[in-house]
Design a protein around this nucleic acid. Sequence first.
DNA 1: AGTTTTTTTGTAATCGATTGCACGAAACTA
DNA 2: TAGTTTCGTGCAATCGATTACAAAAAAACT
Lengths: 337, 337
Amino acid sequence: MSEKTTIYDIAKALNITAATVSRALNNNPKISAATKKLVMETAAKMNYKQNRLALALKSGKSNNVGVIVPYIDRNFFSAIIRGIEEELYPLGYHVIICQTHEQESTEIDNINALLNAQVDGILMSVSKLTTQTDHFEYVLEKNVPLVFFDRKKDLKGVSTVTIDDFEGGYRATKHLIDQGCKRIAHLSGDWSLEIYKNRYEGYKKALTDHGIALKKEYVIKTKSDIRAGQKASEKLLMLPEPPDAIFSSSDYVALGAIQQLKKHGIKIPTEFCVVGFSNEPFTKFLELSMTTVDQSPVEMGKMAAKVFLEQVKDSNVKIEKKVVLSPTLKIRMSSVK
Amino acid sequence: MSEKTTIYDIAKALNITAATVSRALNNNPKISAATKKLVMETAAKMNYKQNRLALALKSGKSNNVGVIVPYIDRNFFSAIIRGIEEELYPLGYHVIICQTHEQESTEIDNINALLNAQVDGILMSVSKLTTQTDHFEYVLEKNVPLVFFDRKKDLKGVSTVTIDDFEGGYRATKHLIDQGCKRIAHLSGDWSLEIYKNRYEGYKKALTDHGIALKKEYVIKTKSDIRAGQKASEKLLMLPEPPDAIFSSSDYVALGAIQQLKKHGIKIPTEFCVVGFSNEPFTKFLELSMTTVDQSPVEMGKMAAKVFLEQVKDSNVKIEKKVVLSPTLKIRMSSVK
DNA sequence: AGTTTTTTTGTAATCGATTGCACGAAACTA
DNA sequence: TAGTTTCGTGCAATCGATTACAAAAAAACT
């Protein structure tokens, strides 16, 4: 029972054609007001619901967009997805989620699956381990809009939405300088990812702008977890002239550093200041709340969605938009003397 | 250029029928090995990709499942989605995300949208503000499998995956008793949500099992945020006989309580113990790490996916499965004297 | 060689909605 | 009244893949 009703069912009930029903439902001016009313009422009575699959097949538009992220349960990414969803849902789009687990092969797999599903666009953050770009170019060949957010690869025809990591690094570092810190270290990530490279560049620029020489031994590349932060800061403390502040490209690393500093009995923020990056939720809840750079992920998601929408609107024109959002420094206890 | 190639294109290229191509690609035994090989090769050469929309329309199965949660960027929910995605993706399913923002009207809207999109099932957590159940029954009428996780409504024919909130409440409370706490308060939520009611029941049972009388003034219902935790604990401290421990149904509320206790100079855990619920990521990172009840959301998601799969396997049989997962008490510093 | 059986491929309908074209009827013009 | 518009519907093709059924080709048999 309660089989789905189609326009054919309505047509049969009214002894008219499915074509007429379709036109009536779509408010086609060629249909008389009387028929329209009749069809509408019958449709409501029979509880008709449009089959979006049939529409999609006919029109070639699925009204689905694919979103690919490394892990969906990382707050930064889930917040971006939230932004995308909230922007696109009112327009009738649905968001299909895929995770790469940072694997390039999974990323390729995801892209193919989404293309098979006939998505109208793909919004994604590139996996850390991705080196090739063939799969991205393949998307473009198929004329499917592609938008990178946060982590990108430079490709012709791909729009990107990122935050100004350079600016973020600069502000964080300048803030530490303003606090009177003289020996500012930097914990970075793998420079094959632009975001880490750019944060470092911002750090460097802030130092030189304020007449502070960059010390090579103050810059350490680490993984993005607490353990790495502990180890790296231990290394810094063992230097003949240990630093008096850390700007970390990761909140987790910064947290590890704070833990290690406390182990050494170092007082934060009076003796040592720490600034993280990402504004992970936990940074705010720490007893010693952490200063960090906010990337406004929800806004980033919304912006990525908007860029996608522009792209589908002028599908004939090839747009390559590069949106750069400004980061915000959230000044909290870990850096205010 | 690079228009999508269909089986018709392959057929034309080989001077055979689309039917033959389809069969060859599906490894139909009625097709000769020679033709199969030829078709396969040509398909690869022409970069053929199956159009899942066409398949979906024909078969009536979209291979998409809808997932509805209040907010996707709440760790508990995003972790569940992660579990669902990881379980279903290998089987060719895609996950479509919707958020309700805890609004019943949005929930109804989401369900209709997902049904229109012909999803093969809906996995969801019921919104806090939902009172009706018509929209759920409507899903069942359409013979679309419906699975509730965590927050549920009792409905015939709906499978549910929850954690044993009673058990969680019991264990948390018993742990506090074991620590020597004598006056254990409980911060709860709105009892129209079973989860809060059940956690309370577990709390109550643990008390009576250990010969402790339940004091009405020790049980307060609050919202689920830090502020509410601060206010509620303030109220508790003003009692003529203030408690010496709090079991909170929410990690955020527990955090607020801890902050308030500290303000009063109360030493945790020596003078006062606190246990939260949910194992939000931040609880582990606090300097005074928080004891809390873990709900293993990724596992819950995987289990919800499995239940859904069983349901589609025996679509003729009406299964109503009630899976109850065991919570785990994560004992940390906030409660160990 | 002629007939039956088996193997392989083709024909055409189907899923549900949309849409260009054509047709019949009413309305208007001259 | 005959001819032209206008209006409202119906017919039939289309999107891409699948699949009963039919037909043709090849193989096996007497």
